[in-house]
């Protein structure tokens, strides 16, 4: 494995049919690099939840994934509405997902809790009206 690999993705807004493509690409690349299946699964789950949140709640955004032999860092940056109360948003069951999204199976309010549970570290930097940057780290 190279010392440091950086992957970047643009996530389009409100495109539910393509949501998950970035996460699946990262998953495939990590598999090819020989990263352990359990770490690959954690990255895939955490990144998908972040990716779909950008699609649903933030008009899309950009994702950078940095891979080193020690860790995988995912940075998901959007210029959406921001999160008013992060502590509340992190609670299981809290969701502001609209009905048309709930009918697709989203809105359980479990995305952010999954992101926390499947990573070693999560930082949420958010400002109302400015946007949100979620940084997640998985140690290898």
């Amino acid at each position: 494995m190279n010392d440091r690999i950086v992957l970047t993705y643009h996530v389009s807004p409100e495109d539910f049919t393509r949501a998950g493509e970035a996460s699946s690409d990262v998953k495939n690349k990590l598999k090819q690099m020989g990263v352990s299946p359990s770490a690959v699964r954690k990255v895939a789950i955490a990144m998908y939840e972040g990716e779909i949140n950008m699609v649903i709640h933030a008009n899309g955004g950009d994702i950078t994934v940095e891979i080193t032999p020690e860790k995988i860092v995912m940075i998901l940056k959007d210029v959406g509405p921001g999160i008013a109360d992060v502590e509340k948003a992190m609670q299981e069951g809290y969701s502001t997902a609209p009905d048309h999204v709930r009918s697709l199976g989203f809105g359980a309010g479990m995305g952010l809790p999954n992101m926390k549970n499947y990573t070693d570290d999560i930082q949420i930097d958010t400002k109302l009206g400015v946007g949100t940057t979620v940084t997640m780290t998985i140690n290898l």
Binding site: A19, G20, S23, S24, K27, A44, I52, L104, G105
Partner: peptide, 15 residues
């Protein structure tokens, strides 16, 4: 019973 594109994404990513 949730049959859509996102079901498939979750299925693939969650292995």
């Amino acid at each position: 019973v949730m049959a859509n594109m996102n079901t498939l994404a979750v299925a693939a990513l969650a292995d």
